[in-house]
């Protein structure tokens, strides 16, 4: 693979260290966009090791990063104009926070990577700046004991690094906070939509086939008429859960994701009803009401993992209530929808 972000190399006591550009090329941006859309994201990696940014010397700061290229790109873009070293850990191509949760962005890997890159020969100080979200996997006091390097937890976001350095490596309270703003929520939508297609398309196919059933047998006219209406409804459910809900998350009522999802499903059900897509028969209307709310609830419940503030205890608690209700509502909804084909 060509590594066009490497622009040269710099000589150190530990040998030649590649220099990386701080300006993202068109290829970098295109790759990052594809990764956001979950296309080929698993092999979107950088080789672990030490890299130079700008023209660093033995006093320059050292930043740790994950070997997920999106994480690495965010770091090098934001430290444009700063002379620094970046030490890229082997996290199997996973971002800092997720990898820290698994322990791959962890104490052992920091210690190993410091040794393997001979960092102590490259810099004269003994400090390594680790993104704050790495703290889930990196125990600062353990790294100090094993490697002699002090871990300093930098800000959560790479974009806060310049002001953080300017303030003498002090992060403000806000720099330490993880939020879940609209921009971050919107970034989830393309990936969720593409990932979800493998469930949506077969379900749509099934509904279209079943739509032709009626008391007298099977009608291809119904397949077309009821089938297309049903397919559009399923697309609306899907959008309720994977686009509308993440966009409107703070404004949807309730704290549990499954409840928020039920509400976004109900909103889309009203759209469907007003557009005449829910059919005429009371059976079918109730069927769609149940399916919109239960499927959307399930989809949004599964966004908990992509959110930045849900706890495992909380997720287990909401699932214990929501999952039985979702299954019951979806099953009753599907049954009523099939009954509606025959009455």
């Amino acid at each position: 693979m060509d590594k066009e972000y490497i622009t040269g190399s710099v000589a150190t006591k530990a040998g030649e260290v590649p220099v990386v550009s701080t300006v993202l090329s068109r290829a970098d941006k295109w790759g990052d966009l594809k990764a956001i859309c979950a296309i080929r994201r698993m092999d979107y990696t950088v080789d672990p090791g030490l890299y130079a940014v700008g023209n660093p010397n033995e006093d320059s700061p050292v930043f740790a990063s994950a070997n997920y290229k999106l994480s690495f790109d965010a770091l090098r873009r934001e430290i444009d104009g700063i002379d620094a070293w970046t030490i890229v850990l082997d996290t199997n191509g996973i971002n800092v926070w997720c990898a820290a949760g698994k322990g791959t962005f962890g104490t052992q890997e920091v210690v190993n990577r410091i040794e393997r890159t001979n960092l102590k020969d490259v810099v004269s100080h003994r400090k390594i700046i680790v993104p704050q979200l790495g703290a889930t996997g990196v125990a600062a006091h353990e790294v100090r004991k094993s490697s002699g390097f002090s871990v300093v937890f930098g800000p959560v976001r790479a974009s806060d690094i310049p002001p953080y350095l300017k303030a003498g490596m002090v992060a403000t309270r806000e720099m330490r906070r993880v939020r879940f703003p609209l921009r971050d929520r919107a970034r989830l939508i393309p990936g969720e939509i593409l990932q979800g297609l493998k469930y949506l398309l077969p379900v749509m196919g099934l509904f279209v086939i079943l739509a032709g059933l009626h008391r007298g047998g099977y009608s291809s006219q119904l397949t077309l008429r009821v089938g297309s209406r049903s397919a559009i409804n399923l697309i609306l459910v899907y959008l309720a859960g994977l686009a509308l809900a993440p966009a409107l998350l703070p404004w949807l009522p309730g704290r549990s994701f499954s409840f928020k999802g039920m509400v976004s499903g109900a909103i889309m059900f009203l759209v469907s009803l007003l557009a005449g897509l829910a059919g005429q028969s009371p059976f079918e209307i109730v069927a769609w009401a149940l399916m919109f709310t239960s499927i959307s609830s399930f989809c949004v419940m599964n966004l908990t993992g992509a959110s930045t503030y849900t706890s495992l205890s909380g997720v287990k608690k909401e699932m214990s209530v929501a999952v039985p209700l979702q299954i019951a509502a979806a099953a009753v909804g599907l049954t009523l929808w099939i009954i509606a084909r025959f009455v």
Binding site: P250, R255, Y309, S311, G314, E318
Partner: peptide, 12 residues
């Protein structure tokens, strides 16, 4: 933006 908060009284 309003603050997003998850379920009350669950943390260990």
């Amino acid at each position: 933006m309003s603050e997003l908060k998850y379920l009350k009284g669950v943390t260990t």
